[in-house]
Each structure stands twice: as C-alpha cells, then as structure tokens.
C-alpha cells in the first residue's frame, strides 16, 4: 500500500537520490553481515584437512565424520535439550509477564521492565561468573544449570515481543468479548492468545536461538561430559582444527536460517 502511494504521488529528485543512496549502502551491509557465516560452507566441503582458505576440491567426508562422531552427536542432543527447556521456561514466565507489561500501566512497571531486560545489556561473561557461583551452590549444573541461565538471557525477548503484541490489542475488543458471553479465561483463550501468538512465537524463536549459539556461559556451567554444540566447537578449535567444525557451523547456520525464514513466512501469511 505504502509503495503504491509513493508511486502515485511521484518522488522528487532528492527523494529518489536518497532511495538510490540507501540501496547502494544496503548491498555492502548485507554482504558484510552474511559473508563470515557463508564462508564456512565452502570450507566444510574442502578437501584440505587444515581448515584454511581457499578451499580445495570437494568432499562430504567432514559431514560423514560429524554425524559419525559420538561426541558431536551428544553435543547436538545436549544443545537441543537445553534450548528447548530454556525456551519453555521463557514462555511459561515470559508470556504472562509480557501481558502484564503490555496491557496496562501499573506502579513500578517501567522499573520492573528495566530489570527484566537487564540481561540483554550485561556482558554474558559477567553473568556467567555470577551464575557459576550461585548455581554451583544450588547444585544446578549441566542441563538444568544451562537451561536456567539461558532462560535468564532469553526471557527478555519473549517479554518484549509479547508486550508489543499485547499493546496492539484494542481493549474494546476484549470488552466486546465479555459482553458476548465470554468469561475472562475464555477471552484470553479465544481472543488474546490468538492475537499475541505471532509475537510469542518470534520471542520463542529468539530465545531458542540465543540458547542455541551461547558459548560463554555454557563454557562455565558445563562439565566435560555435558557439552553443547558451541562448547564442543570451541574446544575443538582450541585443540586442533579440522573442517568438521566448519561442517557443524554450516549445519547450525542452515538450522537457524530456516527457523528465521519459517517465521518470516508465517508473518507474511498472517498479514
């Protein structure tokens, strides 16, 4: 709609040049964002066992090695476990919080919100040190320790996306539902929840991805018997490098990208 308007009204020269200028900047930005991630794909297919540029030849042996390695597969399973557990925790606590922040103004709302989003601005290494101390005392390690810590850094996403979705809901709609015979619980189930679902979904996706590629805290809280994928990659890279790491990186890249594309697709269909 907006685009049509622009064309109907016509653009002035300065607007047109601004447009071209922005397009010219956008290209390099996208390339510089994507290149470092894309580089691992040719490396993971390279015949050279030294993980160096330029790649030579073509082989799938690193993928064979990856999916044949007990250590890698275990780390993959751990990562999924942790990310799913953390995401579920984020949803259970983040959605109600997001609704409370988004529906009306209450005393202390802004302060509480600042508190919830604090983990976004605190360096992970700082969090990691604190968590290491506290969780060790509580006996939280491996799955539960990691899930708890990833909940802390993932929940701001769920709270913020749920909050902004809840803010979009016109309160009149909720009153209308009440007048039509729906108890508050049914209003939530039939009206509020469907209307915030996309926001909740994208928050969950962010929380999942945040846990999925988190390495700093995971390094502190995992034991050698319970490594997640990023931790496994990190230790492989420090020990001695072969393109299996690149194969894993390329796999992660593919998973994450398809999650994001799926989200975009869902959004597009909804609108």
């Amino acid at each position: 709609m907006a685009g049509e308007h622009g064309r109907v009204l016509g653009l002035t020269w300065s607007e047109r040049w601004t447009k071209y200028g922005l397009a010219a900047l956008l290209g390099p930005t996208i390339v510089s964002l994507l290149m470092p991630s894309l580089v691992v794909i040719p490396l993971s297919l390279s015949n050279n066992p030294a993980l160096s540029w330029p790649p030579q030849g073509f082989t799938l042996q690193w993928y064979h090695q990856l999916f044949g390695s007990a250590a890698w597969l275990a780390s993959l399973r751990h990562s999924i476990e942790v990310a799913l557990t953390a995401t579920i925790l984020c949803l259970l606590l983040g959605v109600p919080a997001g609704l409370a922040f988004g529906s009306r103004n209450w005393r202390g709302r802004r302060l509480s919100l600042a508190f919830v989003v604090l983990p976004l601005v605190i360096p992970n290494v700082v969090l990691a040190i604190g968590m290491y101390e506290v969780y060790a005392r509580l006996g939280l390690a491996d799955l539960w320790g990691l899930a708890a810590s990833h909940f802390v850094i993932g929940v701001p996403f769920v709270v913020i996306t749920t909050m902004s979705a809840a803010k979009q809901i016109n309160r009149v709609i909720l009153l209308a539902a009440r007048s039509l015979g729906a108890r508050p619980v049914l209003v939530f189930w039939h009206v509020t929840l469907p209307l915030i679902s996309l926001g909740v979904l994208s928050g969950a996706m962010f929380a999942f991805v945040t846990s999925w590629d988190e390495v700093v805290i995971a390094n502190f809280l995992t034991s050698p018997t319970y490594r997640t994928v990023p931790v496994e990659m990190w230790s492989q890279l420090t020990e001695g490098v072969d393109p299996t790491v690149a194969a894993m990186a390329a796999t992660l890249f593919a998973v994450t990208t398809s999650l994001m594309l799926a989200l975009l697709f869902l959004r597009g269909r909804r609108e």
């Binding site: 016109n170 009149v172 709609i173 009153l175 209308a176 007048s179 039509l180």
Partner: peptide, 15 residues
C-alpha cells in the same frame, strides 16, 4: 458475560 446484553461499539470491535 452473565447479563445477556448486546453491545455495539463505535468501531473496531470485531475480532
């Protein structure tokens, strides 16, 4: 929800 009333609002009240 238990008054059995109908309400029509000014606008934008459809789900």
């Amino acid at each position: 929800e238990h008054r059995n009333i109908g309400v029509v609002f000014q606008n934008y009240s459809l789900f």
